[in-house]
């Protein structure tokens, strides 16, 4: 009877206990109770595990690439849309403006060449080449 009474009191502090934020005194009380009450031990363990597995199944949920594209389009940010993982790594020219340091060698200053392509006069990095 006494034990049952304790179990009821303990419920309200279980949240803080599994989060590790329960004050020292209540924490010691609870642990004394847990040492003698196997049912409450099961409740604590399964409560922890419940949170843990829901965290686990949620961790890899992400927006689809199509939804991400629609979001960036709606926000008028298409030029900043990151490439999906696995796409060919490529330095985007979209962020670079004339007068900015070269993203490749970091020495030259990006400028237009005779063909009006933005290139680095030092290492040659730039958008040159043909339209495809």
């Amino acid at each position: 009877m006494m034990e049952e009474h304790n179990c009821r009191i303990m419920i309200s502090v279980l949240g803080e206990y599994v989060d590790g934020t329960l004050g020292a005194e209540l924490c010691a009380d609870l642990e004394r109770h847990l040492a003698t009450c196997p049912n409450c031990r099961v409740v604590v363990n399964t409560l922890r595990k419940t949170v843990e597995i829901i965290q686990e199944i949620s961790a890899d949920e992400a927006m689809s690439q199509e939804a991400r594209q629609r979001l960036f389009a709606r926000l008028d940010l298409m030029e900043y849309l990151p490439k999906p993982p696995g796409a060919e790594p490529e330095r985007s020219m979209l962020h670079i403006r004339p007068g900015e340091p070269c993203p490749q060698c970091r020495i030259g200053v990006m400028d237009y060449d005779g063909m009006l392509s933005l290139v680095c006069p030092v290492c040659g990095f730039g958008e040159g080449g043909c339209f495809t």
Partner: peptide
């Protein structure tokens, strides 16, 4: 805009996950 897109990129999956679990429809 670059900074805003950085914010969108790094937070949108979490916001989406939250909305999906609140509403149940993609």
């Amino acid at each position: 805009r670059a900074e805003f897109s950085h914010l969108v990129e790094s937070t949108s999956d979490s916001i989406y996950r939250l909305a999906l679990r609140m509403l149940g429809s993609p």
